[in-house]
Amino acid sequence: MFRYTLKRLVQGLITVWFIATATFGAMHLVPGDPLSGEKAASAEIQANLRAKYGLDKPVLQQYFVYLGNIARGDFGISFTQKNREVNDIIREHFPVSATMGLLAILFAGAGGVLWGALTALFRNRLPDVIIMFLVILGISVPSFVMAALGQLSLVKLNAFFGATVLPVGGWGTVRHMLVPSLVLGLGTMAYLTRLMRSSMLEIVNADFIRTAKAKGLPAARIFSKHQLRNASLPVVTVLGPAIAAITTGGFVVELVFAIPGLGRYFVQAVQQLDYTVIMGTTVFYGAFLVFMVIAVDLVYGLIDPRVRLQ
């Protein structure tokens, strides 16, 4: 177990190095000058700016400086927010994205398992038909349409009650988080519902269920101990990739609901060719996802005794 964990972590570190290198490479192939401003600056000022950000050095040297800085956990100073460190930007905005993502995952996970179980239980009956129809909608409507509709319905809701029941945007309290996280988790929830449903249906006729029934175990116990638990195992495996999808999928939701998350910063930074912020956020996100997947794998190994970790 320990050796396996160690091995995975080392592999993770190498992957992060690869992400960092790929980001650096992509960034330096981007045409355009990150230091150009709306007002044209003289050659002297340009040169000074280049020196300030170390862009005057050879590319290889820049690469090693960059790797060294990453190793120390220092992503440098933003190009556009000239007095702000990228670390500060990540520290302030990542928790927002993470909170929203986490809530979305919880919504999606809990919702997926419950709805999936419900549809499997009432297979081909009214609840199944209704939920599966909604699931299909959830899978096939693009996230930006969902987000816009979500906000629109909030406006209508508030107008209906004549008071702010739920704020239409911004961040801070739980009431701000509710609808954006729900919208963000919707696609994943739909996906998980489908997964849960088919995995439930597979288990319903499994031998051990038949045995349990034959033994005369109470129905509720069979359902929760044997069916639900076993059927939700596959859901856990896809949570890793789902986290990745949700954290990056947050862009649109952050844009529409005016949420100060990291995704919005990334889009802005790309528009502004803010090298340090782009590289910092990409490497950070990449590393986060890599270690998230490792964590999910390890947790899965703990939950499911059939999976041997080696």
Partner: peptide
Amino acid sequence: ADFVVALPFLLFMILFKVMFG
């Protein structure tokens, strides 16, 4: 292949888009 899978997809799609200029 594992390395490439680990690249954050949308972030890199945007990066590539800018890169191809």
